[in-house]
Amino acid sequence: MTIHEKTLIDPDRLLTSDKLVVDGVDVSGQWNTMILPRTLKDYDPDFQNVIERYGGAENVHRCWQCGSCTNSCTMYALNTDFNPRYWIYLTLLGLKQELLKDRDIIWQCVSCNKCTNICPKDVRPEGVMKALAHWIEDEGYREKSHSSLFDEEFTRQCLDRGRIEDTELMTRFFRDTRQSLVALVRRGWLGVFVARMGKWPLLAEGHLAKFLARVPVAGPVRMLAHRLFKPRTQSWGRTGEVLRQYVQEQKEAAHA
């Protein structure tokens, strides 16, 4: 018999064989595909506590599974596998393996907070999505996301110097995320972005002087200088060190 909706079955539960003998009877040819039953074997009740310790997920235990978050969700409208209600349920029961099947989409939450506004129990599902995404990275189930890498660089500069340098931030971000600046301008979103600033047409139409007049000069020069000399905010002193230590302490206290 054929399986009509193979897509609904996890691949690791599909067993196929060319030759199959069941209880001494050769059933090859008729039964070459078997599905392993899906059985929940255990709960990890501590998992909820782990997730609650991330900022924003403090209320996850309140969820009563009404589904309002999911059915209001921006991402769910695009992809019905993106289901905050379901992931919250898995979190409460500690069904981590089930949750990890969606490790590659959980981070896609766009923080529109529609879920937060509709949730009758004030669970704040947006915060839970962020917490789950962080947990997945922290445990190494996924590479660090672009936004995490950006955050890290941003925070590092803030703490080191009390300010951020846009050029340094962006070049390091592109490096860490292995994106080529040239390729991005030529074929990627950066090119589109620049084109939308409406300057290319001037060049294309041969108005070189007009084009150059519109290209900022002072700014980039200053940026370059800052890139080389890395100035710090006045009297920044040990502030960064103290902040870094404080953040560390808070993290340790939360996850202890």
Partner: peptide
Amino acid sequence: KARIAEVTRAPDGRLLLKGEDTLVK
């Protein structure tokens, strides 16, 4: 088993319930 997200109107004038059926996901 569902808490409805919104009620809107279909082109034919009937009402449309939108939501997630939590049992069939």
